[in-house]
Every structure is written in structure tokens, then in C-alpha cells.
């Protein structure tokens, strides 16, 4: 009986199983929504859950894993801080018999995590790259703001974008700097770039928070409207900005889908499923003024 109870939503003592949701940061509304959606889905499936904020700090993330293991959590839904550095935490949990399900960000391992559900950032940024080329009419100077350099999403987005834009020799990247996916940092970085390169025509930012930060800096410099700014995420303020004719485009990530599928994977694991795909890319949609009416913050209108 105990064994049977352990295979479902309840543990051996009849209590709901516990799921730890370890998220890279709660200082970005995108990740808050991701974590809360995963928690809501876990609850709907009959589990208890708790959200842990790693504050983009791998050491803190390690502490959360230690705590989750010591506190008897049955599964971890995980949004990593570092593609390479986080692998050890996942392996530690796996060794302790706790399955880990990655959401939105991947770790550089095929077999440490039970499943990894991710946005197909590369393909999304190919589409954004095509739109950027068109918006700038195949020529001009542009700036790229990168996310956290140890995150694979940062480079998949950058590589997807460059796989298109680098084919056009008259599009010249005058600066490429990291702003860690952070709005305030992006504003500061952009202000400093504008000192050296006031003659830019476009900005490609690896997420919407940085795109909004860049927009603030451009507004302060009197360049808003002249410079095409593109983000990535589908955050509420970015969509509003596109509606108002400010940002040119973003790529909508469906993190509700990602969070819910991740929680569902954990549920299916508890019920005996083991053959999960190592990585499951989720498509993203380009959103611009031409199709903004079809979208709402973090998703598509029903």
C-alpha cells in the first residue's frame, strides 16, 4: 500500500508530494509568472510546492538544492542560473533520487535532468533577424544587448539573430555588450554605448526587460522613434510598447505552456512514466504592430 501511495500524488505517509520550484530570479516579471504558473499547475495536480529564488546566483541555487534534498522534496522544477554550473546541482538531486525537470533554460547535459522544456529561441531569433533586416532596410548601425553570458538562451538568441543579419554587410554591429537580462543595467549600458555611437539605427536585445531599458536610454538621448528596438519574451510592458508604436517587435515565449508542461512531466513521472524526451523545444512567435492584436501578455489571445 505504501509503495502504491508513493507512486501517485501522495507520499508514503499519505501527505501530498512536495515539489520545489527553483527559479533563477524573481527580479523579472517573466520568471515570476513562470514560477507562479508552475506552482498553480502543481497545486491543480494535487501537489504542494514552494518557490525558491536563486537571485541569479549559482551558490544560492546550490543552497536551494541542498535544502530541497534535505527537506524531502519529491521533485524539482528548475529554471537554472548557469547552463554549465547548474549541472552539478541537478546531478546531486538525481543521486538523491529526486527527479529534476528543467523549464525555459537548459543545462549542458543530456541525462542529468529528467526532461528539459525550452523555448526554441534560435528559430525565434531567425524570424526576428529577418524582421530586423527589413525594418532597417538592409543597412545601418546597430547594437546588441546580450543576456547572461553563461546562459545558453543568450547565445541561442544571439546566434539565431546573427545567422540572418550577418548576411547583410551593410548592417554593422557597432557594440555588443551584456546587460544580464536586466532592465536597469541595459539602460546604463545603452547610455554608455550612445556616448560612443550616437548614430545607431537599431537595437537587438536578448529579452524585453533589456529592450525596455534600451528604450529608456534612447528616449533620454532624444533618439526614441529613430532607432528600431527589438526584444524577446512577450512581456506585458513590451507588448504595450509595441501597441504604442515604440518597440518594433518581440518574440512571444509561451511560458505558461512551458511551466504547465514541466509540472505535468513531474506528475507523469510520479505515476510511472520514464521515457521523456531529453529536450522539448517550444515554438515562439514574432509579435509586431502587424499582429499585436492576436497576443496578450505572455501568450496568445483565445
Amino acid at each position: 500500500m505504501i509503495l502504491l501511495a508513493g507512486c501517485g500524488t501522495r507520499d508514503g505517509s499519505g501527505q501530498p508530494k512536495k515539489i520545489a520550484i527553483v527559479v533563477s530570479t524573481l527580479n523579472n516579471p517573466w520568471f515570476v509568472f513562470l514560477a507562479q504558473t508552475a506552482a498553480a499547475k502543481a497545486k491543480a495536480l494535487g501537489y504542494e510546492s514552494k518557490i525558491f529564488d536563486s537571485q541569479n546566483n549559482t551558490a544560492l541555487e546550490s543552497d536551494h538544492f541542498e535544502n530541497a534534498i534535505a527537506s524531502g522534496y519529491n521533485a524539482i522544477l528548475f529554471n537554472p542560473t548557469d547552463a554549465k554550473g547548474s549541472v552539478i546541482n541537478v546531478k546531486k538531486a538525481k543521486d538523491a533520487g529526486i527527479p529534476v525537470f528543467c523549464m525555459d533554460r537548459e543545462i549542458d547535459s543530456r541525462d542529468a535532468a529528467t526532461s528539459q522544456i525550452l523555448s526554441d529561441s534560435y528559430s525565434g531569433c531567425i524570424d526576428l533577424g529577418k524582421l530586423f533586416v527589413k525594418a532597417l532596410n538592409k543597412k545601418g548601425n546597430y547594437v546588441e544587448l546580450l543576456g547572461i553570458v553563461s546562459d545558453d538562451n543568450t547565445w541561442n538568441r544571439s546566434k539565431g539573430f546573427h545567422s540572418v543579419v550577418d548576411n547583410y554587410p551593410q548592417l554593422k554591429m557597432v557594440a555588443q555588450q551584456s546587460a544580464d537580462f536586466d532592465r536597469n543595467k541595459a539602460m546604463e549600458v545603452m547610455e554608455s554605448i550612445l556616448q560612443a555611437h550616437p548614430d545607431i539605427d537599431g537595437v537587438f536585445a536578448g529579452n524585453d526587460a533589456m529592450a525596455m531599458g534600451a528604450w529608456q536610454a534612447l528616449t533620454a538621448a532624444g533618439l526614441a522613434g529613430k532607432v528600431k528596438v527589438i526584444g524577446f519574451d512577450g512581456a506585458e510592458d513590451a507588448l504595450n510598447s509595441i501597441k504604442e508604436g515604440k518597440l518594433t517587435a518581440t518574440a512571444m515565449q509561451f511560458h505558461k505552456t512551458i511551466a504547465e508542461l514541466t509540472a505535468t512531466d513531474a506528475d507523469e513521472y510520479f505515476k510511472g512514466k520514464r521515457d521523456f524526451p531529453h529536450k522539448l523545444p517550444i515554438p515562439v512567435d514574432v509579435v509586431s504592430a502587424t499582429n499585436i492584436d492576436k497576443y496578450t501578455a505572455y501568450g496568445k489571445k483565445n
Binding site: E106, N156, L280
Partner: peptide, 19 residues
């Protein structure tokens, strides 16, 4: 297939090399 690769970046680099 994405499941052949350790990272999605490896798979995406294959696309670039093919092109």
C-alpha cells in the same frame, strides 16, 4: 533531432555549418 545533442546550441551550430 534535438535529442541527439548535449545542448541546443550544438544543434543550432549544425544549422549554421550546413548553411
Amino acid at each position: 533531432s534535438v535529442n541527439e545533442f548535449t545542448t541546443t546550441m550544438d544543434m543550432n551550430t549544425v544549422s549554421e555549418e550546413l548553411n
